[in-house]
Design a protein around this nucleic acid. Structure first.
Lengths: 205, 205
DNA sequence: TATTTCAGCGTACACGTGTAAGCTAAACAT
DNA sequence: ATGTTTAGCTTACACGTGTACGCTGAAATA
């Protein structure tokens, strides 16, 4: 018995095609604002004007992509936490998970990194929200695991995220040999922050 | 006695006009790749086609702007170092100097930050070079002032620059009340890295 | 003074862009 | 069975873009 494709299902499918097409168009040389409605439509296999049946304008598509990217980011967080429970250290495991994520989903991470400093205030705000979620979760984790104050944990998490995300940016242009260097360096830098934070707990400045 | 304007001087003047026009066009909503030759020419007061008398293409202008921005960055470094010699701490003074710089030259800093993750590999590389200079100078300073190894000083400097530059990005969108928050937080985060680094010297991981 | 050089100009072209207007056909509701 | 809704289409328009081409007038040089 062949499935009956309802109109609604078809529309949802096309919408997903547009999103996929947009992500496919987002290589190293394209930003959200430089991706054109016409190109996306071409890749998605629809007429340019049909785009408007699904999104109000190109910016709405952009925000949707940022949301999807944020979702992927939270999956990363979950997957890292699952791995931490094993024998290796939390920092080491987290960094390795993050590196794998960036390399596997480099288009997604590039999107976040680029729009974080991009030309659209809306996109910047959207990315900032996602990063903030990420930082908040890390803060909670630190508060849970370490003996520290909340505000100190916040600063520690913020510093760590900044270091890790910056390293992620380096990964995007890195050669194979550089990747392990960056990974090791980042781990050490997080150790610095970690140790420094415990010092600050006892001896506040 | 009125000055005689040679042809060469005039050309240099026009070239500077183009550069100034480009910087003026670079507000929060423009990246190097979205600045158009025609707009720059319009602001500089020349015909679009005259642009080619001074630059091979728009990318050459972009690289020139990055170079100028890097120059400004090095001025910042010098000015910070001059101030450190006074009574306040090096970290505190440096962060304050940096914050002042970002607020005063926000167009310049935005250019660096944006192109650091931008769509042009050439621009990314150019910005990376400037940041690397910055990090190298900081590394030398740390090696000079602290008892540490060179590679550890490198990591420390790298982490500090990452934190400070990320904070600089936040400053660009920050309100007045947020600015001092960011400043204080950044100082504390640098203290973390600093203390953590000294811990790592004695107890290597 | 006569000649060469060249910064700047105006015109023109092909191209990609967003999007408005109206049509078609198929999936719906009645 | 009949009427309504709507996803997707084709056509069309105005606009900004990079840049090729040839001209002009003044500065530089001989």
């Amino acid at each position: 018995m062949s499935q009956k494709i309802t109109r609604e299902q078809q529309k949802l499918q096309t919408r997903q095609n547009i999103i996929d097409a947009a992500f496919a168009s987002l290589d190293a040389t394209k930003s959200l604002s430089s991706v054109s409605l016409r190109e996306v439509a071409r890749v998605a296999g629809i007429a340019p004007t049909s785009f408007y049946r699904h999104f109000k304008d190109i910016d709405e598509l952009g925000l949707t992509l940022v949301d999807e990217a944020g979702l992927t980011l939270r999956q990363l967080m979950r997957s890292a936490r699952r791995r931490i429970s094993s024998e290796n250290g939390a920092i080491s495991t987290s960094v390795e998970t993050f590196v794998e994520f960036v390399l596997a989903h480099n288009n997604v991470f590039r999107l976040l990194l680029r729009e974080h400093t991009g030309t659209s205030a809306d996109f910047r705000a959207a990315v900032l929200r996602e990063i903030q979620h990420f930082t908040d979760e890390l803060t909670d984790y630190i508060v849970l695991k370490e003996q520290t104050t909340y505000s100190l944990a916040q600063m520690q998490a913020d510093a760590m995220v900044k270091i890790v995300f910056s390293a992620g940016g380096e990964l995007l242009d890195a050669s194979d040999v550089q990747i392990s260097d960056i990974t090791e360096r980042t781990k050490r830098q997080l150790y610095m922050v970690h140790f420094g934070a415990t010092v600050l707990v006892n001896k506040p400045v």
